[in-house]
Design a binder for these strands. Structure first.
Lengths: 380, 380
DNA sequence: ACGGATTGGTTTGTAATCTAGACAAACAAA
DNA sequence: TTTGTTTGTCTAGATTACAAACCAATCCGT
C-alpha cells in the first residue's frame, strides 16, 4: 500500500512543498516550475483576480510563462476565467483569472481542546462548509488517534469536491513529518498520526502543533500584511507559534513556541510542572477566570514582560492573541502591549502591535487548513 | 558608472545570493544551477575533500551533475584535484576534490570598535592573511565612511589573488541592501556604505550589522554543527545576532538583535537611553569591569533571564558569547546558563548550551568575511 | 594470471522549462 | 480610418538536470 519512498507521510507522493528538517535540498528540474506555479497562485490568492499580464508584472516572470502556468492551473480547475476587465483604458481588455475557492476542499482537525476534537470542511478561501465534533471522553493513545482519524474520514466522506488533504493541529511537540513526539494530555509519544489518519482517508495528511498552525492561519487567512508574526494561544495552557518571513519556526527539538513554562515570576504561584511562576500560572485561561477582571492588567504585564526580549531579538511587528473571549479583554491586551513598549527600545517598541486573532475560536481549525494549503500548493 | 539596475549595490551585477527583503522571488532558468553549485561547494567546505561520486551521494544529485559542476568550479580555480584516495577498497579509486582556500580573498572590515576600524585580508578558510587598523580619531559621517573605504582599498591593494568582495560589519541598523539606516556613534543615517566602499574598491561590497555578521561567522567558521544560533556580543553595548536554519533574521525594521535596551531590571541603574535597568546597564563590558568579578553571577543571571523567553520561543540550542575576555568569565557564562535552565521547561533548557565564541576578537571581522562567502558563493 | 565484481567518472541523448522576439487580436483616442 | 497600446500566444533557442550506457581502474577469489 505504501510506497517505498522512506519518509513519505503516507501512500501518496511526497507533498510538493513539505519542507522537512533537511539541511539543504538539491534543486531538481521541476523545482523552478513548482516555485513559479506557487508564486502565481499565491499572487492570485493575495491580490484577487488578475490578468495573465498582471501576473507577469507581479512575479517578474514573462507573460509567456504566466500564461503557461495559468493554462495548467485552469486545467486543474484551481483557477477560472472571470471575463474581461471593464474600464481598462487603451489596449486589448484583460481576461481576469481568479482562484476558484471551492475547487478543492481540506479537512481540518483541531485537537487542542481537552474535551472534544473539532473538525471542519474548509474551502480554499478559508470558509467553513461543514463541522463535526467528537467528544473525547477521556480517550488517549491509540483510541484518541482513531477518534481523530474517524472524524477526518467522516468529514472527508461528505466532501462533494476533490480533497486537497487533511490538516491537523495537535497539542504537543510535532516534528516536521507530522509525528507527534510528545503530547502528554493525549498520551501520545512518537505517534505517527499522519500515517494513522492517512489510513482512513486517502489523501495527504499534514500535522502541526496547534499554536504553530494557528500562526500560519493568522498569516494566510487573516489578511496580515506582514510575513512574520507571533501568535500567542491562551487556553488551558499557553503556547505560541512563530512565523518568520512566511516560514514556521520549529526549533532545535521542534518545541519552538512552548512558552507556557517560562518562568516570569519566580516568587509566583506554583505550577503543575513543579516550578513556580510559570507564564501559565499568570495567564492561562482558568487562572485568569479565577482571579477576575481586576487582575487582568497584572497578567497582561507578565505576558508583555516575557515577550519584550523576544520582540527585541526578532524585531517583531505583530503579535496576535487568541483564546477565550471572556478572559482576553482590552485591558489585558493593552497591558501586555504597554509592558512590551516599556521594556523595549522605542525604535522597536513603537512599531509593535498586539491584536486579537481575527479567526476567533476557529484559529487552529483554519490554521490546520492553511497548513495543507501551504504544503500542497505552496500558498503561505 | 553604475548600471541601471535599481537596487544594485554597486557597479557590479547583483551578488548571486544576496537576499533582499523581497516578498518572494521568481525562479529563473539559472537558479537551480546556482543552488546546486552552492550546495556542492558548501558540502566540500563542510566535509573537506570529497570525490565527485561522494558529492553526488551527499547532495542527491547525479554523478553527471556533480561532475559537471565540479569542472566548472575547477575552471574557476575554486576547487582543485587532490589526487586519488588511498585505501579505498574495491573499485576505481576516487579523485578527491577540495576547496582551494586561497583561490579567492575577501577584505573584511570591523567597524564595531569605538576607537579604531579594523580590517583584514581573509582567505576562504577564514584564515587572516594581513591586518590593518585605522584610528577613527572621532571621525563621523562622511569622514568615517571614507576612512572605512580607504582602509578597504588599502588592503585590497595588497591582495595577490582575486578578491571575492568586501564584507563590512557595522554597528547600528543595516538594511538588506547594506544601507546603514542608523548608527548614532558614527553619525550615519541612511548612509549608502556599500556604494561608498565600492567606489574605492572595484568588487562587490556587503554590509551587515556587526552582531549579525558575527553570528554568521560563528555558524560558518567555528564548526558549529547546528544551523541555528544566537550570538550575544558584549562590548560598549550589547547586541545580538540570530541565525535560524542558516538564514540571518533581520526583523521588521532590520533591527533584530538590538537587545541592549531591553529592560531586565526596572528598578536598576539608569541607562544612557533614559530608562533604567536596560540589559546594557547590567552586562555591558564597562559596567562589568567597574563592578568587578563579584558581580558576575548576578550579571550573568540577568542575561539568562532575558534570554529564557527567547530560547523557549525559538527552541534554541546554541548561544554564543563574545566580548572582552577579562569580563566574560566562566562564572558569568554558567550563571547565564543556569538562569536560562531555571526559567525554561526542561525539554528545552536541558539542550541549551552557552559557549564562548571560538573566533575571539576576530568575530566581527571573520563574520564580515563570512557574509561575503554567503552572498557571493552561497556558502553559509 | 585472469575473470568477475565493484566503484568512479564520462559520453550521449532526452525532457523540461524559461526567455526573447515576433505577431495577431482587441480596443481607445485622434 | 489611422495610430498606438495592451493582451495573449506562437516559435525558436538556450540551459540544465537526468537516465542509460559505457569505459576505467581497482580488488578479490581462484
Amino acid at each position: 500500500m505504501t510506497t517505498g519512498d522512506a519518509g513519505t507521510t503516507n501512500g501518496h507522493a511526497r507533498a510538493p512543498f513539505a519542507r522537512r528538517g533537511e539541511r539543504q535540498r538539491k534543486a531538481g528540474p521541476g523545482d523552478t516550475r513548482r516555485h513559479n506555479r506557487a508564486l502565481v497562485l499565491q499572487t492570485m490568492f493575495r491580490h484577487g483576480p488578475l490578468s495573465r499580464a498582471d501576473l507577469a508584472r507581479a512575479t517578474n516572470l514573462t507573460r509567456v510563462t504566466t500564461s503557461d502556468l495559468a493554462t495548467e492551473l485552469l486545467a486543474e480547475g484551481l483557477i477560472e476565467e472571470l471575463g474581461t476587465r471593464v474600464d481598462q483604458g487603451v489596449g486589448k481588455p484583460a481576461t481576469l483569472l481568479g482562484v476558484v475557492p471551492d475547487a478543492r476542499l481540506t479537512v481540518a482537525l483541531d485537537l487542542s481542546d481537552g474535551e472534544r476534537f473539532r473538525a471542519a470542511l474548509v474551502d480554499l478561501g478559508g470558509k467553513v462548509l461543514d463541522r463535526r465534533t467528537a467528544e473525547r471522553g477521556g480517550r488517549t493513545g491509540a483510541a484518541a488517534a482513531d477518534l481523530a482519524a474517524d472524524l477526518a474520514a467522516d468529514l472527508a466522506g461528505t466532501a462533494d469536491r476533490p480533497l486537497l488533504g487533511v490538516g491537523v493541529g495537535s497539542p504537543g511537540v510535532v516534528d516536521p513529518a507530522g509525528t507527534v513526539l510528545e503530547a502528554p494530555n493525549l498520551g501520545w509519544h512518537d505517534l505517527d498520526l499522519p500515517g494513522r489518519v492517512a489510513a482512513a482517508v486517502d489523501v495527504p495528511v499534514h500535522v502541526g502543533n496547534d499554536a504553530n498552525v494557528a500562526a500560519l492561519g493568522e498569516l494566510g487567512l487573516a489578511g496580515a500584511a506582514e510575513r512574520s508574526l507571533l501568535a500567542i494561544k491562551i487556553g488551558q495552557g499557553v503556547g505560541a507559534g512563530l512565523v518568520l518571513d512566511g516560514h514556521l519556526v520549529l526549533g532545535d527539538r521542534f518545541a519552538a513556541g512552548e512558552i507556557g513554562h517560562v518562568v516570569v515570576d519566580p516568587g509566583g504561584e506554583p505550577c503543575a510542572c513543579g516550578r513556580t511562576g510559570c507564564l501559565e500560572t499568570a495567564i492561562a485561561a482558568p487562572r485568569l477566570r479565577r482571579r477576575g477582571p481586576a487582575a487582568r492588567t497584572a497578567a497582561g504585564r507578565r505576558l508583555g514582560e516575557a515577550l519584550a526580549p523576544v520582540v527585541s531579538t526578532l524585531n517583531l511587528r505583530e503579535v496576535v492573541l487568541s483564546g477565550p473571549l471572556d478572559v482576553l479583554d482590552e485591558t489585558f491586551r493593552s497591558a501586555a502591549l504597554a509592558a512590551i513598549r516599556d521594556r523595549t527600545m522605542p525604535a522597536v517598541g513603537d512599531h509593535v502591535d498586539i491584536r486579537f486573532s481575527s479567526l476567533g475560536e476557529d484559529d487552529v481549525l483554519l490554521g490546520a487548513a492553511m497548513l495543507v494549503l501551504d504544503r500542497e500548493l505552496g500558498v503561505a
